[in-house]
Nucleic acid binder design. Sequence first.
DNA 1: TGATTGGTTCGGAATATTACGAACCAAACG
DNA 2: CGTTTGGTTCGTAATATTCCGAACCAATCA
Lengths: 162, 162
Amino acid sequence: MTKKEKLIEKLGVHIESKDQLAPLAARILATLILSGKKGSTFESLVSELGASKSTISTHLTTLQAANRITYHTKCGDRKKYFTLVPDAMINSMSVMLKNWKNESDLHLEIMEYKKGVNAELPEGCTEIFDLEFHNDYLEFLSQATASMEKLQKKLTEKHKND
Amino acid sequence: MTKKEKLIEKLGVHIESKDQLAPLAARILATLILSGKKGSTFESLVSELGASKSTISTHLTTLQAANRITYHTKCGDRKKYFTLVPDAMINSMSVMLKNWKNESDLHLEIMEYKKGVNAELPEGCTEIFDLEFHNDYLEFLSQATASMEKLQKKLTEKHKND
DNA sequence: TGATTGGTTCGGAATATTACGAACCAAACG
DNA sequence: CGTTTGGTTCGTAATATTCCGAACCAATCA
């Protein structure tokens, strides 16, 4: 196993669980990350990943449909050169942000629910729910979100000037 | 569908994808979140979630094995009252931190690899890789990590005084 | 025009996941 | 002791995931 292959494997495992993708789809993304702007051809993916043409083909189409990869061509060359979409990182940050937003909303809803239950408890009865940590966690989420939005903005600016 | 059932469903979906759990395992956690310190019994989980005894039983054991839930008993009562482990949130933050650490390491490794490839390129050739954004992202990860560690510490302190 | 290149499509096969029911068991109850 | 309560175990059905091979197709080459 070459250095590159090992790194693809590690990256693949990570992407697979982070993005909930099929093993081979994740390996394709990992490969494209490591092949940069020049991209990888269909053929090279087949041989590098040791998978069948059909498998690579279907994963390539679904990854394109999911707006994670694209391709360019060279004149006098019928091959497609696949690369990550240029705003891959920015997109992935968007989904992180969406998840955090969702999580915040859930915490708020849970707090509402818990407050309602606590309120209906008979006097003197110990409360069933501890609400404080929700506020702490919401505070964290808002910090993390701010930090991520800042970075996203920075990258977007940079990206416009390409 | 009651308010509670709807919330369990929403929470369940979220937990399922966030923690990569089986649907019913996630619903169990969601239910326990909403039942607080008093907990839920085996029986109530079976009826509330509309699942079979066997399914609930196996998921309860795996969730205990994964250190996500525990139970307490009341004297003169053979039933087990299941609850989230008291440090559930702190634990989940630990796994987030571990993931971010892993991600940082991967970015560093990728940068090393890319630098190596760029260096071997013939003079005057445009570089294949853009390295700058890795640094930006690493910066973000370190901020997010700091923020999370701070919160974790805060909750740990609070938790010791219970 | 026939063969080669660069892929796509379709019908499974292999495997993994998820939940179920029936049978079982141990403790307590009467 | 027999029965009820509170659960566990095991075999398996239903379904989903993941990948493969064979057949196919369209563009280019010789």
